[in-house]
Amino acid sequence: MTAVAELYLRDVRERMAEIRHLGDRALSQLGDGDWHRYLADGGNSAAVLVQHLSGNMHARWGGLRGGYRPDHEGEPASRDRDAEFEEGRLSPAELQACWDEGWAVFEGALEHLTPEDLTRTLTIRGEPHTVLSAIQRQVAHYSGHVYQLVLIVKTLRGDQWQTLSIPRGESVAYTAEVQAAQAAISDPHDQR
Rank of each mutant, 00 (worst) to 15 (best):
H72Y: 10
G55N: 02
R15T: 07
G31T: 05
R20M: 04
V12Y: 12
D11K: 07
Y8F: 15
A40E: 14
E73S: 09
V12M: 11
M16H: 10
G43D: 14
G31A: 05
R81F: 07
G23T: 00
H36T: 10
V50W: 03
R79Q: 08
E14N: 11
L39Y: 08
A26F: 02
R69G: 09
S28R: 12
D41V: 12
R79V: 07
D32G: 09
R25F: 03
I19W: 06
R65C: 15
E14P: 02
G23C: 04
D32P: 14
P70R: 10
R37K: 15
E75H: 13
Q51R: 13
H36R: 04
D80W: 06
G43F: 10
G43Y: 07
A17N: 11
N56L: 02
A59E: 06
W35L: 03
V4Y: 13
Q29H: 11
H58R: 15
L9R: 03
A5D: 15
R81P: 04
S28W: 02
P70E: 15
G55C: 05
R37G: 05
D24Q: 08
L9W: 04
H72V: 01
L53I: 00
H72D: 10
L27S: 06
W35K: 02
L53H: 06
V50L: 01
P76I: 07
L39R: 10
H21K: 13
H72M: 11
R13V: 02
R69Q: 15
L9V: 05
I19S: 12
L39C: 11
A77Y: 01
D32R: 09
E18Y: 13
M16Y: 04
V4T: 13
G74L: 10
D24N: 11
L39H: 10
Q29F: 09
E73I: 00
D24S: 11
G67S: 11
H36D: 15
L27N: 01
G66C: 07
R79S: 06
S78T: 14
W61R: 01
E75G: 10
S45Y: 04
A47N: 08
D80T: 02
S45K: 05
E75R: 15
T2R: 13
G74N: 10
W61Q: 08
D24W: 05
G66D: 15
A3Q: 08
G31Y: 03
D71M: 04
L7G: 13
R15V: 13
G31E: 14
Y68V: 02
D34A: 14
Y8K: 01
G74A: 12
L49W: 01
H52F: 03
T2F: 07
I19D: 04
L30H: 08
